[in-house]
Structure formats: structure tokens, C-alpha cells
Amino acid sequence: MSTADAPRIGMIWAEAAGGAIGRDGDMPWHLPEDLAHFKRTTLGAPVIMGRRTWESLPDRVRPLPGRSNIVVTRDPAYATPGASRVASLEAALALLRPGTDLAVPATAPGAVTAWVMGGGELYRSALALAEELVVTRIALEVSDADTFAPEIGSEWHLAESQPEQVSASGLRFHIERWHRNPA
């Protein structure tokens, strides 16, 4: 796939202190405002996720409505009703090239055309390909976390940081948007 044909990849996640994003296959917090933000951000665009992220979605929203769902798993027999199953991130991206059923044209110049939404292994694989990161930072310690966000390195710059908010659940959080530095 040529660079011109490649989808513009964004990554979206919520993390607690120390980069914690998961515990025992689930998010170790309840933050309805972030779930609403996630929906607003990804609606209409394909979402790419690993098998454990797929399994963590409640049955009532699996597959996530209003988005093409792509599940990356090494198990060729794994069932993903309502979603496309692929063996690798590269195969997921191939499904999104122009002329395919899942391709979604950007609605604005530079707009993200697909979102990687977890988990930890897929985030680490996709980081080198992503052009935008949307990160919700939660003021919470999760001492028994077992899944972590990738480290945001010097190839990124903070494009936007929203003011801190307090969730209805009492958690403090803020949302950041990062862009890849020009080459």
C-alpha cells in the first residue's frame, strides 16, 4: 500500500497514573464522560482492536455501533460476529485502503480515517504508524494494573490539553491531543 493509499491512523486511550490502561481484561475505573468522548471521537470511523479489547466490550455494544470494527487476533478460528477478523495490524490496514468496503474518506484534510483502540500490544505496534493520539489522563493510581499505554516519545508534540474536569464518578481527568512532529 502506498503512503497516499494508507489510512490516517489515530490512537485513542484512557490512562491512569503510570500509564495503566487495564486490569484483568477491563478498565479499572468508571468514567462515563470519557466513554462519551470516545464515542464522539471515533463515531463513523473504523476502529481497530485486539481480541482482549473486543472481549472486554459489553455484549450490548459489541460490535461498537456506527463504526466498522476490526479485531486483530492470531487465532484464525476466533469468531467476531459483526466485526472483521484479521491476523495482524498490517492486514487491518489493508482492509482500509481506498476502494475497499471499510475505507472511510477523511471528512477534512488531515482527519483521522481509522482509530486504534487497544490493547497494549496493538498500541505498541501501531505507534510508529499513527499520526494522532487522543489520551485521557485520569488522576488515579492502579497498583495492580497489568496493561499499559505506550510511552509518548519526542516524535510527538502536545497539540491540545483540555482543562481538568471532575467526573460524575468523582475522578479528575483531562484530555490531551498529540500530533506527530513533521518529518
Rank of each mutant, 00 (worst) to 15 (best):
V134K: 10
A45I: 05
H37Q: 07
A159G: 12
Q162P: 08
R23V: 04
F38Q: 01
V166G: 06
I21S: 05
N69I: 02
A108L: 11
I21E: 08
L127S: 07
T113V: 10
G118T: 08
N181W: 12
V135D: 05
I48P: 00
T113K: 13
M117L: 13
E141F: 07
A20V: 08
L140H: 09
G153R: 09
E155N: 13
W13S: 01
S125F: 10
G19E: 12
L43H: 08
L95H: 12
E132C: 14
D75K: 01
R97I: 00
A111G: 07
R74V: 07
F148V: 01
E131L: 13
V86H: 07
G110D: 06
G50T: 06
I175T: 11
R52K: 15
I70W: 00
A17F: 10
W13Y: 11
P98F: 10
I48H: 01
S143F: 09
E151D: 15
A139E: 12
G18C: 05
R23T: 04
L57A: 05
R51L: 07
N181P: 03
R85M: 00
H30E: 07
A159S: 14
Y123S: 04
R40N: 15
M1G: 15
P163F: 05
D146Y: 06
E164G: 12
L102P: 03
V142C: 07
P81F: 10
A87M: 03
A149T: 01
A128Q: 14
A114H: 06
S143D: 06
E131S: 15
P46D: 00
E90S: 15
I12R: 01
L102M: 12
L96W: 02
G50Q: 04
W156A: 04
A94C: 04
V166E: 10
A91M: 06
W178C: 03
G44I: 11
D101V: 14
R180N: 01
R23D: 00
I175W: 07
A108Q: 12
H157F: 15
R62H: 01
I9L: 14
W115S: 02
T42G: 01
E151W: 13
E33R: 02
A79G: 09
G19W: 07
F148D: 12
V134S: 09
E176M: 11
T100P: 00
L122F: 05
T3C: 11
E132L: 13
L129H: 15
L31T: 04
R40M: 14
V104M: 03
A108V: 11
D146T: 13
K39W: 07
A87W: 04
A94P: 02
P46K: 10
L64Y: 01
V86R: 08
A108H: 15
P28C: 11
G19P: 06
M49I: 06
T113M: 05
R172L: 04
W54Y: 09
Q162K: 13
R40D: 15
E164S: 14
E15G: 00
R137G: 05
T113S: 10
L96R: 08
Y123F: 14
A4F: 05
T41I: 08
E131D: 11
T41S: 10
